[in-house]
Design a protein around this nucleic acid. Sequence first.
DNA 1: AAATTGCGCTAAAAGGTTTTATTTACTAAT
DNA 2: ATTAGTAAATAAAACCTTTTAGCGCAATTT
Lengths: 336, 336
Amino acid sequence: MKKRILISDIAKALGISVTTVSFILNDKAKEKRISEALTKRVLDYVKKVGYKPNELAKSLRTGKTKILGLIIEDISNPFFGNIARLIESKVYEQGYRIIYCSTNNDVEKAKELIQMFYDRQVDGFIITPSDGLEDTVKQLQQNNIPVVLFDRYFPSLETDYVGADNFQGAFDASNHLCQQGYRRIGFVSLYSDQTQMKERSDGYMKAMDNNKQQSFIQKIQMDASDEEAMESLREFICENRLDAVLFSTNYLAIAGLKASKKFNFTMPAVIAFDDHTVFKLVEPSITVVSQPIKDIAENLINILLLRLQGKIKATRRMVLPCELKVRESTKVKVTS
Amino acid sequence: MKKRILISDIAKALGISVTTVSFILNDKAKEKRISEALTKRVLDYVKKVGYKPNELAKSLRTGKTKILGLIIEDISNPFFGNIARLIESKVYEQGYRIIYCSTNNDVEKAKELIQMFYDRQVDGFIITPSDGLEDTVKQLQQNNIPVVLFDRYFPSLETDYVGADNFQGAFDASNHLCQQGYRRIGFVSLYSDQTQMKERSDGYMKAMDNNKQQSFIQKIQMDASDEEAMESLREFICENRLDAVLFSTNYLAIAGLKASKKFNFTMPAVIAFDDHTVFKLVEPSITVVSQPIKDIAENLINILLLRLQGKIKATRRMVLPCELKVRESTKVKVTS
DNA sequence: AAATTGCGCTAAAAGGTTTTATTTACTAAT
DNA sequence: ATTAGTAAATAAAACCTTTTAGCGCAATTT
């Protein structure tokens, strides 16, 4: 157990002051007019002994921790897992670390987590906000903590936000179904006020209206068990004799597939929002509305970093286009 | 922006010393013989003004950060994602936080990450070690940092470890295939020296030997692209006219399924190591060797926490049983 | 000649805790 | 009346940085 080397050890060894070393290490040599010779001497010595500053002491002094809080819905959902992975490697390059937690859409847990991260003085937040988190986010803003929301936002709150064009995605998907000749097209969503759900729902409705089609909408409880969801879906699809369904999330579509397997009914044409490995492998493969995950992650980080550097003041809302990936589940044309 | 309240503010407000407040807040009132009356007065006041100690200052002083480093292969793989989620919520209850990163099996990245976390003074590590990480782990141990490995370990290094019984899992799976009447049973693995792969391979071989069957083994490069893997698998399965395959990881099995779809060959009987949503939904559904994820997560945390509290000295290696979940892919009996 | 500026560097404060070593005010015992 | 002992609290050091304010001197400007 060798002792950690300190900045004071360096100063002592070189016969100079701690201040000077600190300036040099923080790239302020020029600004503080430290001679080039000394700068080099210090840098060389630091490299030689492999000095690493104590990040805690640094953070205590500067008030910056170089840690970002990531509050997401569920790390085990590949959509969020992938975003997390991309975010993680992006910020890593910039010297930031991520500390994360899943909320599972539980407001109270989310509040607690945010408070906890705040107490730990994270420098900024990336949050998928659950219903009811508006005030908490507002407080963060009032305390001057940068926050970027993603996947959904609060219409009444001016916040940075990055998300997909849910309306267009759902609209295109629904239109595609109409063009393929389907006539009884259902939409499966959640009992939730989250914006992304509302937008997807609106996109579906608009497309139905444009095509002079009926709307069939089924909402599922957010806390419904797998069984309950499957039962609702079976009923919705079978009793309405739907010939196509647009699912507003990947896990709802998966529940649908499970239901069709369990209750042994044939699945109508299907489109899911958000891709998933399952959809490529199932027979027939499932058409999806795919969110630009990489773009979303990159923009989230960019905006957050700009905020941290104080380089932007106006709030930014970025809406990125979705892509319809047509697969087998909607290829069989039904001519009416 | 209201100012944070400090311990000194409390001391001042109550006309006592900072030391006393600190003792009381750290449950040392008894030990330090602070009067009950004062203790209560302080506690009440603290609650009233909602004082939260500055964790950074605390960490700087004590050397403990209450943060654990989680070094994982790939957060976007549901197996690891699920473990991460379970770990996260477990340690959360104990007042610890998780800071994580994915290595994608890249040793250099892993080393860098561990160094970084070490510099940030995490209190302990949970690591899925990639090949070549042995020395780094050893160094951590020498520096008295608790480390628990999982999923795999280093035979030559005494470390705490939690993992599944890979040998038994693979053995049972292979035996099951034999009992179902399959005769040309292949095993797909990775070019890797990781213990879990070796154990699974051994389990398969032992079962083949016991049943007087030939062995067919195909290894894939760890850094192979999806395309390359698919091509190798097609060749392996088709040219050897295999009637059953045991895949040593879930993503290899998925690559197999993709290959069969792409190259349009019928998949033989299949068993995958580690479950995945895909396997329940695909037609036919895939039999899997399922690891006890919850048990693994719980034991990882328990051991790490005990270590952190200095309550154990001997290293612990926990091996937990796997469960064979028989599904359709191996149910159709082939009578020879 | 006096005042200002520039240079190269540094002493000391600040950031907010925990913990060690001590003090103070008593009571009980010699 | 002194000593010893104890209960209750505290002053100050320690943890390791960054940053503010400034020093002493030489050169330049007024």
